[in-house]
Structures are given as C-alpha cells and as structure tokens.
Design a protein around this nucleic acid. Structure first.
Length: 600
RNA sequence: CGGGGUGUAGCUUAGUCAGGUAAAGCGCUACGUUCGGGACGUAGAGACCGGAGGUUCGAAUCCUCUCACCCCGACCA
C-alpha cells in the first residue's frame, strides 16, 4: 500500500522487487550453445543465461533474469545520487527538434542522432542525451541564485544510431543511461558540484564490486582537467587507458601526454641515400628489409583542412604532412587541437599525388612537388639519420637529417599516442596501458548550453548570469556487460553480490522424492526471505547436474544444496560461485552463516 | 558509408558446387526406466528453407531484386 513511500533502505528495496522467487514461477531460459551472432564473452553469456534477447541490431529485450540485474544497478545508482543531493526527474525520450536546433546539435550531431517526424511532419529526435531539455527546464524554473546549486538526474532510455552496434549490451543503439546535470551560480561552485559527483561515482563503482579506474579524459573545447571517465578494467574493453603503476596518474589514450624527449638531437652521421625498397610500403616492412630498428623510421601522414565561404563551399585547401616515428601512432584528438587543424580530414589520393608526386606508401618530406605545412612529433624532431619515403614508388631515403637535408618543421608538437614504457607525465615512473570499458563519465560543461539557450538566473546583485553546468553519465545497461567481461569463467557468469539477479539460490536434490528435502527447502526459503536475503528456490525438479549447470551459467554467487544425505547429518552444502568445493554448514545456523558471507 | 559473409525447427548446424518435394544434435511434449554434475529408451510435436519475382515439368539449391543480421575497414601510406 504505502510501500512506495517507504525510504529506500535495504529491506524495503527487496520488498519492492517482484515477490516471485520460486524458479517454477519465475522465468529461466538457458541455452547450451550461444547464438551464432554473439561474439564477445559477455554477449554470449548473457544470451546463454537468458538475460537478454536480441530484437534487432543493437536492440535488446531485457528478460526477467536480466532485468533484475539492471534494477539492482539502477537502485544503487539512485541511492547514491540521492545521497549526493541530486534530485530525480524524467524527461521525454522523444524531444522536439526546436530545442536541438537552438544549440545547433540537430545539424551537428550527424547520423548518430535519430530524427523522426510526427503526423504533421514536425521534426523530433529520440534523445541520445538530454542537455537541451534539462537546460530548457532550468531557464524556465531557475530564476534566482537562491535556487542554486541544483542537480537533476534521470534514469532513462537513450538511443544512438551507432554506425556499428556490436558486442551486445556493450555498444547497443538503445540503452539505459543515468544522466545528471548540475547547475551552479559560478565556476567555483560548479567545480565543487563536479567533485561531489566524482566522489559519488567512486562510491557507486565501489558498491558494484568491480575493478575500475577513474581516468582523466579529454574535455574537448572546454579545456581544463574537469573530465573523468570511469573505466571497468577488462581485456576486451574498447578503450585504451594509460596509468602509472607507481602513482595515481591515469588518463585515457586521447588525453595522455607524451613527454618531451630529454636527449638532444644527435649529430648527423650518415649520408643521405636513396634505397630501393620494392613493394615495402609500411615502416615495419622497410625496417625489416633494411634490418634497422623500427624506431629509426618515420611515417608520413597526410591531412587536409578546408576553408569554406559563407555558402559552405570550399575556397581553399591546406595540405599538412604529419611525421611520426615508425613505431608510434597518431593521436587524432591531439592533432585536432593544433592551430589550424581543428577540422582536419585525411587527404585524398589525388591531393597526395599532387603534392608528393607519388602514391601513398613511399611518401616523405624531401622532394615535395608543392609546398605544404609539416608537423613533426616531438620524438621525430630530435631524430637523426632517419628513414622516410622517397616520394617515388619502391624507394625510401636513409640518413635523413633535419636542417642538413630539409628545413626544420613548421611545427613540433605532441601528436602521438603514448606507448607502454613512456615516462609518466607526473615524473613518478613509466606508463603502462590496459584496456577498459567506459561505464561512467563526469564532465564540467561551463556555460556552453546555458549560453546557447539563454539560461540565466539573477545573482546577488540582481544581474542575470549564465548558469554554470556539469553533466554526469552512467551506462546502466552497459554495466552488467562490463561486469561479466571482468567476472566469468568457463562455466558462466560470476556476479558480484551487489548486482546478481539473485544473491542466493537454494538447490534441493530430489525434492519430488523426499518429503524431508521438500519441507526443509521451503522452510529455509521462508527463513531467508524473512532475513531479507534475495533468495530463489529452484523447485523445478531438475536433475542436479542440469540444475547446477544452469546456476553456474547464470552466475548466482551463493548456492545452498539441500539433500536427503545432508539432512540426515543435519548439514547443508554451501558453495560460492568461485569456490572449487562445497562447505558443509549445520542446518541450525545456516541463515546466520550465509548472511555473514554476503557482501554488506 | 566501403568491403566481405550469412540467412534452413526455439538454439547449433548439414543439405546449395553437380535442381527431384527438407536432415541431424540440443531443446520441447507424452509414457516408462532413472535420479549428486547438462540421464536413457520408446513415441511424438515443431521449418511454406528471410521475402518477392524469374528460369524450369520440377527450386532450399540456378538468376534478378529486396530485407535482415554478422564480421572487417573507414584512410596510421
């Protein structure tokens, strides 16, 4: 009756979940073989365990077992958000295009933004996020500094028309996100609000029981360091994260700085020599052919930037040559921040041939047909006697030296991805790289949206000021996938207690043949329910092998086996999903014993 | 968006090259025997072979179009 009004304490939360906790009434649907279109382990296991069902590319039904996991994730997020002072609301999934046109994102966002029309041909979008709507609310509702700070959040369905959805719930098109937006009177206050969220996120991810890292992220045009990603560590993660094992430095690959080389450029020792390298168009091939270290080669990347007139027509194109050491990779975010390269694209083959007189594969900065701007990575700028393409098919040049053979570059900058072993920017050792799955992101926005949409409040002096904003996301439906990537074995999923579909499963053996087992199972089930344990009684009457295989696949962390054999000795068998063997527990104090084993 | 691939029962697949009216395993139903690690036997149910059009006496199979899904790539020369 008044359940909805009860505070969200642990017990009340369980009371709010559906009361069906017997397997025969619940819905269990496991598969021995994963559907052929599942590729990564979390996707396969989610399909096999019957957590989700695919409806279309990147679109999934959350089946009862999977929904329980998602509800637990939501409950933890909601509790900590509320605790951090955020207030929940719910904004529409379908939003009028007008708001999105105000910020320019209706055009800018490209095909990832799903646009739909109603019967009157009016434009709408399916929200991929909700800055526009929440800012619209703020500009209407927030009039005084006395109403600040405020943080609005929602847990809501999002849609992003990904160019290539994949990996099940890891990169779906429709997904659930918790998105929060803070509003403050000034920058200091906004940064304080940001820190409150960053702290709340740490509490949230600690509670999930996953190994994660908070990493500094690129904050785009806003600048500053106020952007962090929360990455669940997993080998199959899509993001490379950089950290220093000897300190707390951690950043994503876009952001991680490659320190300026300490050693000065060596003196030229070799003569400039044109060398045949037939069919060897990559740095690695050339290095192998010439039997030299890959670090002595330089790769040439050709970019272009277009200047457009008011009509959007290209009036001028500037071609750029980027030079990177053969063993390094370009960092597109770093390049995009260089003066003049904000909207770079890769040059076309005709543009390349026009400037170099050669097809790609044998390009270099010497003997250009047309002038262009040369940007050298800081590591390239200190190289001596290096190797690059000769601007002629099947030839490279060795013994190249700055100043002697070609002018110094127009610009020297950090334009590469760091690699393992690079010095840490904080001077505390060398960097290591591991992979992560981004499950959360906190971001200081400034006044980008409030200015675009005219969201102001009156300050102490009665003067209108733009609201300072921050936004904070958690991928609710991605989280279970990340949890599985990190916690599974050959038998199936191993859920952390906090987000397991059920915390404890009771497995009676031969329940149909033994009144004792049946009675004990039901009595225990009632006892655990009364003790507030999220328990499921497997009363399906499956044979033990099939029953164990199911629960190991589904990944319920705690299992209690009830058998005639054990009951005669007054014992039950307890096994954690990670245990290799069962532990015998006395029937008399089993509830207390199990409760002691559950994560707080 | 470019390239490649796959669509046959709820799931995994065979059959397609060499056209002749759809097969197996798992799962499912019933009965019996079993009963502590995905049991066994018997009997069943279940597929207009993604869709449309065409060729042919005859199409899962050949041709055309279309849809869906998966993978790789999207400029690292």
């Amino acid at each position: 009756m008044h359940g909805a009004l009860r505070p969200a304490s642990g017990l009340a939360r369980i009371a709010e979940t559906p009361p069906v906790m017997k397997a025969s009434q619940f819905f269990i649907s496991t598969l021995k073989e994963a559907p052929a279109d599942a590729e990564v382990v979390s996707h396969k296991l989610m399909m096999r365990a019957g957590l989700v069902k695919k409806l279309g590319a990147g679109i999934y039904t959350y089946m009862p077992m999977g929904l329980r996991v998602i509800r637990k994730v939501e409950a933890i997020v909601r509790e900590e958000m509320n605790r951090a002072g955020a207030v929940e609301l719910s904004m529409p999934v379908i939003q009028p295009a007008e708001l999105w046109q105000e910020t320019g994102r209706f055009e800018k966002m490209g095909p990832e933004l799903l646009r739909i029309k109603d019967r009157h041909e009016r434009d709408y979008v399916v929200q991929p996020t909700s800055e526009e709507v929440v800012t619209d609310i703020a500009r209407q509702e927030i009039r005084s500094y006395k109403q600040l700070p405020k943080n609005f959040y929602q847990i809501q369905t999002k849609f992003r028309d990904e160019r290539r959805p994949r990996f099940g719930l890891m990169r779906g098109r429709e997904f659930t996100m918790k998105d929060a937006y803070s509003f403050d009177r000034d920058q200091d206050s906004a940064k304080a609000s940001y820190q409150v969220m960053a702290q709340a996120y740490r509490k949230i991810f600690d509670r999930f029981g996953l190994t994660y890292r908070a990493v500094a992220a690129d904050s785009g045009a806003i600048g500053g360091d106020l952007s962090e990603e929360f990455q669940v560590i997993a080998a199959t993660g899509e993001d490379a994260i950089v950290y220093c094992p000897g300190s707390d430095y951690a950043a994503n690959m876009e952001k991680a700085q490659a320190l300026e080389p300490q050693a000065p450029r060596a003196a030229a020792a070799q003569a400039l020599t044109k060398t045949p390298t037939p069919g060897k168009s990559t740095c690695a091939d050339v290095a192998e052919l010439l039997a030299v270290p890959l670090q002595t080669t330089v790769k040439s990347l050709v970019l272009a930037t277009d200047t457009r007139n008011e009509a959007g027509e290209v009036v001028k194109t500037q071609v750029w040559l980027l030079l990177l050491r053969g063993d390094h990779d370009m960092n597109e975010v770093k390049v995009g921040k260089l003066p003049g390269l904000a909207d770079f694209r890769f040059a076309t083959v005709p543009e390349i041939e026009d400037h170099f007189g050669s097809k790609p594969g044998y390009l270099g900065p010497i003997g250009l047909k047309k002038p262009l701007k040369i940007v050298a990575d800081r590591d390239v700028a200190v190289m001596a006697d290096w190797i690059c393409g000769a601007n002629e098919a099947d030839f490279h040049i060795t013994g190249v030296n700055w100043a002697r053979d070609l002018p110094e570059p127009d610009l020297v900058a950090d334009i590469r991805n760091v690699v393992a072993g690079d010095a840490s920017p904080d001077g505390q050792g060398v960097l290591a790289i591991e992979r992560g799955i981004e499950v959360g992101h906190v971001f200081y926005l400034g006044t980008k949206y409030s200015q675009a949409m005219g969201a102001t409040f009156l300050d102490v002096n009665g003067k209108p000021q733009f609201l300072e904003m921050g936004c904070y996301g958690i991928g609710i439906t991605r989280l279970p996938a990340a949890a599985i990537e990190q916690n599974h074995d050959e038998r199936g999923i191993i859920w952390p207690d906090a987000i397991a579909p059920f915390t404890l499963v009771l497995c009676p053996i031969g329940m149909d043949r033994s009144e004792e087992v049946k009675a004990a199972a039901h009595a225990l089930y009632q006892e655990f329910l009364a003790a507030g344990v999220d328990v499921l009684l497997d009363d399906r009457g499956e044979r033990p092998g099939a029953m164990f295989a199911d629960w190991e696949l589904i990944g319920v962390p705690h299992r209690l086996v009830i058998s005639d054999r054990g009951l005669k000795e007054g014992q039950l068998e307890y096994q954690h999903r990670r245990d290799t063997e069962a532990t015998k527990l006395a029937v008399a104090d089993v509830v207390a014993s199990i409760r002691g084993r559950l994560a707080a």
